[in-house]
Measured scan of single mutants.
Amino acid sequence: MPVRRGHVAPQNTFLDTIIRKFEGQSRKFIIANARVENCAVIYCNDGFCELCGYSRAEVMQRPCTCDFLHGPRTQRRAAAQIAQALLGAEERKVEIAFYRKDGSCFLCLVDVVPVKNEDGAVIMFILNFEVVMEKDMVGSPAHDTNHRGPPTSWLAPGRAKTFRLKLPALLALTARESSVRSGGAGGAGAPGAVVVDVDLTPAAPSSESLALDEVTAMDNHVAGLGPAEERRALVGPGSPPRSAPGQLPSPRAHSLNPDASGSSCSLARTRSRESCASVRRASSADDIEAMRAGVLPPPPRHASTGAMHPLRSGLLNSTSDSDLVRYRTISKIPQITLNFVDLKGDPFLASPTSDREIIAPKIKERTHNVTEKVTQVLSLGADVLPEYKLQAPRIHRWTILHYSPFKAVWDWLILLLVIYTAVFTPYSAAFLLKETEEGPPATECGYACQPLAVVDLIVDIMFIVDILINFRTTYVNANEEVVSHPGRIAVHYFKGWFLIDMVAAIPFDLLI
């Protein structure tokens, strides 16, 4: 008679799926529990143990900040960024110097990925580790590398530091407007667009060049630039800015003055950032001319202004700041037409079709709590990747769950009947059967004279019903998954307890 339990259901295979997918890609990662103190490590794979030199037993239950890997060259700011990422709910990448158990130093890129439950609360953290440099290539500990984003994938490793954006290309926007319009339909740009040429040739750093990471940081200074100062900065030398009595002219307006920039070969870094931020506020060169004239017309309804409409929906549905990093990277690809469009465009503009998908598509409701890094690593669709929660398995109709209350009560009843059979069957065979043979035949009273025979008949009927119930009862397979398919249940029961239950259900007393 089957006594099969499996009270692990309803099970959740999400954690096993993450481990299996990460292991298949030869990654070095740990999984931490966000619900406990210090976000203790609950799993670390073999790749991480080989990377740091510690065994799994030495890593388990330690804080996922990996303070046991810190050393003299470990930056405090990087460690603080990892700790801050564990307090938030967004994906974050941090470069930090770690030390192995043998004392060797290596520069590592740590990717902190939160995993949320159905309520939107962070319950786990996945920390992925990628070695960037070994100890002989690690720089000085005073050099802070965590304020910069990861290198873009479309640049060669040897040319990542030679990417320079020439400031004269930004200063000569109005001069290039006529050349853009003359391109017409034969050019790649839309009317009114501004073409910015980027020099990728390796050259020595000069005062006129600005690194790509500095251009990325310009967006942080746009908020500090007032509207009046932006307007004066875009007017140009024809209309000098008016300053109040006793007030000095704005240095932001002076930063885009061609006369002032041409007199000296070098520009201050602050002026460069502010000038680029001011130019980015204009949607095209037409807006710059309109600002000089004193009238700013409404933005025209053409394809170039609607190019950012799908980007707005993608940004609203993005799951991490990696989408913004990807957008900034692609927006700086050289030799393309940049349409400086305000994100607050007309909502009635139709979304044009684009061959290049900048932001990841909208994630469906079932995966809105899973970050983009987890979705990318697992390579699963929205119909396959579940949320991290207890999910009731989908069972067929008329199927009994093996952990249901009805099955528990039924098993206790069958257990009592088995005990009765084990006690009274030998007793009936030894004593009652002998008395029946010696006594007179009682054929007239039937079952009324033999109450134990009636009980034995009921017990046999219950055993037959138990066999039928076992054909529709779920079970737990070797992978700790609840199986509810009727065919698989029948095959599993035939290979197991079916023969024993059938022999126990045969009414031998009635056959004798």
Rank of each mutant, 00 (worst) to 15 (best):
G246W: 05
V112Q: 01
L165E: 13
D219R: 10
L87E: 14
C66G: 01
T17A: 12
R326K: 13
L51Q: 01
P114F: 01
A303W: 14
A211Y: 09
A83E: 09
L109S: 15
L225P: 05
Q11I: 09
S239A: 08
E95A: 05
I288D: 13
M124A: 12
S313M: 14
D197V: 01
T65P: 01
L87P: 01
H254R: 05
E37H: 14
C39D: 04
G381Y: 13
K362E: 10
C49E: 05
S322E: 13
N339G: 12
E130W: 06
P240G: 09
R92T: 15
G103W: 01
C39I: 12
S313N: 10
Y43W: 05
P352D: 03
S283K: 03
I288G: 08
E91P: 11
V41F: 01
F125W: 10
R292F: 03
A203R: 14
T74Q: 01
P300N: 14
A253P: 14
G24K: 12
D136N: 13
R328L: 04
I123R: 11
G120C: 07
P151L: 15
D342S: 12
A156R: 13
C64H: 01
R271H: 15
V59T: 01
L316Y: 07
D321G: 12
E208N: 09
A204M: 04
T216L: 09
A97Q: 15
G120D: 14
P141I: 11
D287E: 14
A57P: 09
I126S: 06
V138R: 14
S209K: 05
S243D: 13
A85P: 01
S140H: 06
S313H: 12
R76I: 14
G47F: 03
M133I: 12
R56Y: 03
S261D: 12
D219L: 04
E23C: 06
T371W: 06
A253N: 05
M291V: 14
I336P: 11
C105G: 08
V374R: 01
E134A: 08
E372T: 10
G184C: 06
V279I: 14
Q247G: 12
E50N: 12
P63Y: 01
R176H: 06
K362H: 14
G262F: 04
A185I: 06
L343C: 14
R5A: 09
G224H: 09
L127H: 01
R35H: 15
C265T: 09
R292V: 07
S278A: 15
N339R: 02
E118H: 11
R62P: 01
D259C: 11
G6T: 13
T13P: 08
V180P: 06
G262V: 14
A293R: 10
L315R: 09
P347W: 03
T17I: 07
A185P: 13
H70S: 05
A244K: 14
S179W: 01
V222D: 05
H147G: 05
S178Y: 06
D102I: 01
P205S: 14
N369W: 11
V194G: 04
M137S: 14
E274C: 04
L380C: 07
G238V: 05
S207Y: 13
L109W: 15
D136I: 11
H254A: 12
S207Q: 15
S354T: 15
F68W: 10
K373V: 12
A203E: 15
L225Q: 08
A78F: 01
G186S: 11
Q84D: 13
R269W: 07
G224K: 14
G139R: 14
V325L: 14
D199W: 01
V115H: 13
G103S: 15
G139T: 15
A121C: 10
L315Q: 07
R100M: 01
P227F: 14
S55A: 06
E23S: 11
A57R: 14
E130S: 06
V222T: 06
A190S: 05
A204N: 15
L109C: 05
V198G: 01
T319P: 14
P168L: 03
R252E: 15
D346V: 11
C52S: 11
V215Y: 12
G139C: 10
R281Q: 04
G236H: 06
S207E: 08
P168K: 03
P141A: 12
M133K: 14
S278E: 11
D355C: 15
K373Y: 05
C44S: 04
S264D: 04
F68H: 01
N220A: 12
R148M: 11
A293L: 09
N38K: 15
E134N: 13
A204Q: 06
S278K: 12
G71Y: 01
A175M: 04
D355A: 14
G306C: 12
L311I: 07
R100C: 01
